[in-house]
Design a protein around this nucleic acid. Structure first.
Length: 459
DNA sequence: CCCTATGATTTCGG
DNA sequence: CCGAAATCATAGGG
């Protein structure tokens, strides 16, 4: 036991010195005890330790030979186990000092962003997808998708660089890790290196490499941001929609004035017709609603224009029927329809609308009005739902004049075609919202909409 | 260069 | 997530 303690003491010093190779040579044997018997062995141990300490100073072959010699030394197992014990003690304190790695929030943020941008995500086609997008963009006349494909091409470029770099880092990391692990494993035969320590070493290496990765991610993020600001932000440099698109949108808007909220399908259709996106349609209607409501007066002309236009369009469809049912007595148009007057005792203007509408709807059964059966809707549609009407009547050409005649003979209704501000925004209630089309209020004077009408936002 | 129109974005409420 | 409202930023006309 006495001897054991001595060895321990000696090794304690050596082991620590060996850790941060600074001893250079074995410590002198500790003093203060009777050491007459173990002198030879002490010499032995000192020799071994010296060899261990200086092993790195020697040439490879030499060291290899020496190592082998050490490995076969009779004292080796005992020494080694003691070294391990000591190491265990010091190792604990080291391990306690630096605990598990925290899931770096910065890295998480970068990862999330890269994922969101589609840079880090699954390879979903990669360049081929971009090529396809470019091809699609080239094929279609949608002008903003050209920029978009450009953006995507650049993005996929970034993505490619990112991936190759990442792969490179990963490979290097793995190589280095295995190299170090082999080294340590090899050394663990002569030095007390526990598997846990190897693990720790590996994790340190990984941390180092992941910090490099983070730099890569960081710069990739920056690149994406720059790209975004160059392209996507350029969408703020808006292009006005084509005249035709605006036309179509306005037609829809004014023909659904009582409820200008296109359904998803309607939006899609409008988007297709206008060569814009659905969200652009939504934007347009959002803007239109708010701006219309804010200053109805300003939109009167436009409203009348489109009302007239659609009325005329509808007229195309209806003209034929109108013509052969009665061309000479338009003042009593309800003769041929099953209208019940008592149900339509509204003010005269609307009554006229009703008459005309019923003329149209009654004579041409192909008017599939959204709320068919609802006469108020029909009235409002006269103002007029040309959406379906345009399709139905597109081929009728020559009856415009007839219809004009019919309309003008319908007392007072020539306002519609004349463009006078008689157009009434049905369905827009006084609170600044569009109410349900099925419960229309009485007509609001166009010049007395919610809030000031003619002042605009002169703030 | 100013002014208005207009498409897009942001903010806020349901 | 949708829509209202406010706001931003540019287009486009004079």
């Amino acid at each position: 036991m006495d001897e054991q303690a001595r060895i321990m003491q000696t090794l304690g010093g050596v082991s620590l010195a060996g850790h941060s190779v600074q001893g250079g040579m074995a410590l002198p044997p500790p003093h203060g005890h009777d050491g007459t018997d173990g002198d030879g062995r002490k010499q032995d141990i000192g020799d071994i330790l010296h060899q261990i300490m200086t092993i790195t100073d020697q040439s490879l072959d030499e060291a290899q030979a020496k190592k082998h010699g050490l490995n076969c030394h009779r004292m080796k197992p005992a020494l080694f186990s003691v070294l391990c014990e000591i190491k265990e003690k010091t190792g604990l304190s080291i391990r306690g000092a630096q605990e598990e790695d925290p899931p770096d929030p910065q890295l998480m943020r970068l990862d999330n962003m890269l994922l969101a941008e589609g840079v880090a995500g699954p390879e979903k086609g990669g360049g081929s997808a971009a090529a396809a997008a470019a091809a699609a963009a080239a094929g279609s006349p949608t002008d903003n998708s050209i920029e978009h494909s450009d953006y995507r091409a650049k993005l996929s470029q970034i993505r490619q660089i990112y991936h190759t770099e990442l792969e490179k880092y990963e490979q290097a990391c793995n190589e280095f890790t295995t190299h170090v692990m082999n080294l340590l494993r090899e050394q663990s035969r002569t030095r007390p290196i526990s598997p846990k320590e190897i693990e720790r070493m590996v994790s340190i290496i990984h941390r180092k490499f992941s910090s490099i990765q983070m730099q890569l991610k960081q710069s990739t993020c920056e690149a994406v941001m720059i790209l975004r600001s160059r392209f996507l932000d350029a969408r703020r440099k808006r292009r006005n929609f084509s005249k035709q698109a605006t036309e179509i949108l306005n037609e829809y808007f004014y023909s659904h004035l009582s409820n200008p909220y296109p359904s998803e399908e309607a939006k899609e259709e409008l988007a297709k017709k206008c060569s814009i996106t659905v969200s652009q349609v939504s934007n347009w209607f959002g803007n239109k609603r708010i701006r219309y409501k804010k200053n109805i007066g300003k939109f009167q002309e436009e409203a009348n224009l489109y009302a007239a236009k659609t009325a005329v369009t509808a007229a195309h469809a209806a003209a034929a029927a109108v013509q052969n049912s009665q061309t000479n007595s338009p003042t009593t148009p309800n003769s041929g329809f099953q209208m019940k007057d008592e149900e339509f005792q509204l003010d005269s203007a609307e009554n006229k609308n009703t008459l005309l509408t019923n003329m149209f709807t009654g004579s041409s059964g192909s008017f599939n009005l959204p709320n068919s059966g609802d006469l108020f809707m029909s009235m409002q549609n006269l103002n007029g739902d040309s959406y379906q009407g345009a399709q139905v009547g597109a081929n009728v050409q020559s009856q415009v004049d007839t219809l004009r005649h019919v309309i003008s003979q319908t007392a007072g209704y020539n306002d519609v075609l004349g463009g006078n501000p008689m157009y009434s925004p049905h369905g827009l209630n006084g609170n600044g919202g569009w109410q349900d089309a099925t419960t229309p209020s009485s007509v609001i004077s166009p010049t007395e909409g919610p809030g000031s009408v003619h002042s605009d936002t002169s703030n």
